[in-house]
């Protein structure tokens, strides 16, 4: 049971992000959902990189067992990329707000259908 607890917590976060991305009408809220989803993927990778009884992957003569450094590197890259995508998404939200004067998805759709 405890062997899988971390995975299930990660899955719960992942689904929370997915739900927020699909179900919320507000575009900023959608971006927040996307962020939650991204961090849940980070947690999954880092969880897999953990070695029981190991220590942080910094070489030291006192330790012989280290956690896996490879997922850490991948997630370092992914965190920076996630900030870049968030910035781009929020810039798009601002532009949409300027053109439609609303960031609620149903309003935007109604406006689109009103003037073809």
């Amino acid at each position: 049971m405890s062997a899988y607890f971390n995975y299930w917590a990660v899955f719960a976060l992942m689904l929370l992000g997915l739900y927020a991305t699909i179900a919320s009408d507000n575009l900023v809220k959608k971006v927040v959902g996307l962020n939650i989803f991204q961090t849940s993927v980070f947690f999954l990778f880092i969880t897999m990189g953990k070695v029981g009884g190991g220590t942080a992957p910094i070489a030291d003569s006192q330790y012989t067992l280290y956690s896996n450094p490879l997922p850490h590197v991948l997630i370092l890259t992914a965190i920076v990329v996630s900030v870049a995508t968030t910035a781009l998404a929020l810039a798009l939200v601002i532009r949409i707000r300027e053109s439609y004067s609303s960031i609620e998805e149903s309003d935007i759709q109604a406006e689109d259908e009103a003037q073809p």
Binding site: F42, I46, T47, G49, K50, V51, G54, T55, A56, P57, I58, Y66, S67, P71, H72, I75, L76, I79, V80
Partner: peptide, 9 residues
């Protein structure tokens, strides 16, 4: 989870 660099970032 021992990922100190990731925690920094």
């Amino acid at each position: 989870q021992d990922a100190v660099d990731v925690a920094f970032t």
